[in-house]
């Protein structure tokens, strides 16, 4: 998303449609990349790669489409508390099943 950084600065309150279309294009490209792991074998890189792509897509939608970047910090806090708790608590629970051991 770095190529859009300055763009975002310029359009602080009200990102333009063009900016959204760029974002969508990048997201679509990421999706294509993700899907390509189905045909091309990345070996042991596949899972980390997919996870990274996933979180990039996740935050792109969150910050740009859902304009959390421009929203009140409080809203962000509310959402991140939920997200953080969800990730933390469920990973801990899966750990107790020794889910990641195998």
């Amino acid at each position: 998303m770095s190529e859009h950084a300055e763009h975002a600065e310029a359009e602080h309150d009200h990102p333009t449609n063009r900016y959204f279309i760029y974002t969508a294009a990048v997201l679509a490209f990421f999706t294509a990349l993700e899907t390509s792991t189905y045909w091309i074998d990345f070996g042991s890189f596949a899972t980390p790669l997919l996870l990274i792509l996933m979180s990039m897509k996740f935050f792109a939608i969150l910050l740009i489409f859902m304009h959390l970047k421009y929203d009140s910090k409080l809203f962000g806090a509310m959402f991140y508390i939920g997200l953080g708790l969800a990730v933390g608590v469920y990973i801990a629970a899966l750990c107790t099943f020794q889910f990641f051991a195998g």
């Binding site: 959390l68 929203d71 809203f75 962000g76 509310m78 959402f79 991140y80 508390i81 939920g82 997200l83 708790l85 969800a86 990730v87 608590v89 469920y90």
Partner: peptide
């Protein structure tokens, strides 16, 4: 946003 934060835990559980 609060509702969505709460939904995170719902889907987290299912996932």
């Amino acid at each position: 946003w609060m509702f969505l934060g709460s939904e995170c835990l719902l889907f987290g559980g299912l996932i």
